[in-house]
């Protein structure tokens, strides 16, 4: 397996490992960015206003129950006639990953805001912070640890699930697993799995480091 990875042949061409890693990260990054754009504001709004709590919890649970593989196949069948070229595969793939990433981001943002000490929020309102001021100066900074952990678990799930892109003829590290399976090249398959795992760990570590340096020491004990 190691020799498979270190084999120079696998570092060039259309299936080169760096290229696959790049594709894999690109799908994941796009999906995460969209998921943050959707889940983060909803979580903030619901946490701050306490409106729609039940809806958020229900939606998150429903989304978690979706089978990624089944969904991507369904979406490819639906979108196939609509889009030309790779988009017919790319869009379904990103949608599936977004749906996977939204629940942890949304619910953790909401939970983080909801868990802020009510006395601190009350004091902030009484001092004369505007509603937005309370959110930006008190609730959001205090919720950051939980928000980061939501982002982390979303990232882990997205990177490991992004292998399904290859299932619908796209790139990414899933290629190694799918192709390896097709050619009964078990070393290639294992190499794919190991690379996905390693990538996940590295990205996770980076987020952990980033949160270490952004979070107030007052929130960590």
């Amino acid at each position: 397996m190691i020799s498979w990875i270190t084999n120079p042949q696998h570092w060039t061409g259309s299936d080169a490992i760096p290229l696959l890693i790049g594709q894999h990260l690109a799908y994941s990054a796009v999906a995460l960015a969209i998921a943050v754009l959707i889940g983060f504001p909803i979580g903030l709004y619901v946490g701050h206003t306490r409106r729609g709590v039940v809806m958020v919890a229900g939606t998150a649970n429903a989304l978690r129950a979706l089978p990624s593989l089944g969904l991507i196949v369904l979406l490819v069948i639906l979108f196939g006639p609509v889009f030309a070229s790779d988009l017919a595969f790319l869009i379904p793939c990103v949608i599936v990953l977004v749906l996977l990433a939204v629940p942890p981001i949304m619910t953790n943002t909401y939970a983080g805001i909801a868990a802020v000490d009510p006395a601190a929020v009350d004091a902030a309102r009484g001092m004369g912070y505007s509603s937005l001021g309370v959110l930006l100066h008190v609730e959001l900074p205090c919720a950051l640890p939980l928000i980061f952990s939501g982002l982390r678990s979303a990232t882990l799930q997205v990177i490991s699930t992004a292998t399904i892109a290859a299932y619908v003829s796209l790139g990414g590290l899933g290629r190694l697993i799918i192709d390896g399976l097709a050619q009964r090249d078990y070393f290639e398959m294992v190499a794919g799995a190991v690379l996905v795992g390693a990538l996940t760990l590295v990205v996770d570590l980076l987020i952990a480091l980033a949160s270490r340096f952004t979070l107030s020491r007052g929130l960590m004990r």
Partner: peptide, 9 residues
């Protein structure tokens, strides 16, 4: 207020 309500961060 009663429990001070300081900003933890």
């Amino acid at each position: 207020i009663q429990h001070a309500g300081l900003f933890p961060h």
